[in-house]
């Protein structure tokens, strides 16, 4: 395997981990806003209990992705940095507001409601903006004026392809998060919250699928090069679709406790697998382009000796950190006393 390919795969892996973790995070914020006034059901509490320890760790992935991109592909920084200035700055402002308010709302209960609304709204806006990076890298939205690259904002905001991506981002966020919260409230034995989130997942699921199909159609119209390459990976796409149905059907089954692995966990697993497969196909089709058609992974790659040093530091770093992650997981995802605590 070439160095550039290793770097691409690592970067791809970070993006996927972040997209899944962040979807759940942002979605949880949204649900905690939606169920704010259901005092009885504890749905908001469940969402918040999941959110409090996790958002900080999730946020590090934003930084990780930017750093991995800049360090592996500095040649892409110039183009991406220039064209993403406006959408990027807006995302940054929203992230700043959201994260700050998240922490505050846990410390000062008086403002809980207002703060939940902030985190709910930004929880929808941020994924919608972030996803725009994909169509931008697919080409057609960058023009050169006097040798300087610029983003065609109006074209971006009126493109059906971009709009369907935005729809896909929002529905996936809601689907994944409601699914995970179904599982989480199941483990916490919160029956009502469980029923609510399960219902939400069942409603949003098919809409998500619809948006995915729609996005493929608009891609056919606006980024045909990618569409054609994507179908070279048709089996993967198909498998991804199958995973969705497995996940959905498992969720429909009657849910009881007491099996070795409970059903909502299986649903979550297949839903995530579905995203992994689909985005692997997407990533593979997108290569070697980072920004079509100007920047490729070869043209943007870092200096080879820097890459080797980076690679070593990744291995050493993760080897040291993995026990920390496991400890964290055991503290918050498995520890019964944390999950069942009274609000």
């Amino acid at each position: 395997m070439t160095d550039t390919l290793i770097a691409s795969i690592l970067l791809w892996a970070f993006v996927i981990i972040y997209s899944v973790a962040a979807s759940i995070d942002f979605g949880a914020g949204f649900w905690s806003m939606v169920y704010l006034n259901h005092e009885k059901t504890k749905a908001t509490n469940i969402a918040n209990r999941y959110l409090s320890p996790s958002w900080e760790v999730t946020n590090v992935f934003v930084v990780l992705i930017v750093v991995a991109l800049v360090t592996f592909f500095p040649g892409a920084t110039y183009t991406l940095g220039t064209v993403l200035l406006i959408p990027g700055s807006i995302v940054l402002l929203l992230l700043l507001i959201r994260s700050a308010f998240m922490v505050f709302s846990h410390l000062v209960q008086k403002y809980n409601k207002l703060l939940s609304v902030v985190s709910g709204i930004t929880g929808i806006l941020i994924p919608a903006l972030l996803i725009c990076v994909l169509p931008i890298t697919e080409g057609g939205f960058i023009a050169r004026f006097q040798g300087v690259e610029q983003l065609l904002l109006t074209k971006l905001l009126t493109s059906p392809h971009v709009l369907s991506y935005i729809g896909l981002a929002i529905t996936s966020t809601l689907f994944l998060s409601s699914l995970l919260l179904t599982d989480y409230s199941f483990v916490s034995k919160e029956r009502e919250a469980f029923a609510i989130y399960r219902k939400d997942a069942l409603i949003v699921g098919p809409v998500t699928l619809l948006m995915a199909v729609l996005t493929l159609q608009t891609m056919h119209l606006e980024a045909d090069w990618l569409y054609r390459r994507l179908f070279a990976h048709a089996p993967l796409l198909l498998a991804s679709g199958v995973c969705f149905f497995v996940s959905y059907i498992v969720l429909l089954l009657p849910q009881q406790r007491g099996r070795v692995i409970h059903l909502p966990r299986i649903s979550v697993f297949f839903a995530i697998l579905q995203y992994l497969l689909a985005s692997y196909a997407y990533g593979a089709a997108h290569l070697p382009y980072i920004v079509y058609p100007e920047v490729t992974i070869e043209s943007g790659f870092t200096h080879p000796s820097t890459f080797r040093a980076l690679f070593v530091s990744y291995i050493v770093g993760f080897a040291i950190l993995i026990p920390g992650f496991i400890y964290f997981w055991r503290m918050f995802m498995k520890d019964e006393s944390y999950l069942r605590q009274k609000p």
Binding site: V70, P74, T306
Partner: peptide, 10 residues
Amino acid sequence: MEIVGKVISL
């Protein structure tokens, strides 16, 4: 950042 990426990314 282009130079940073190539030289001082560690």
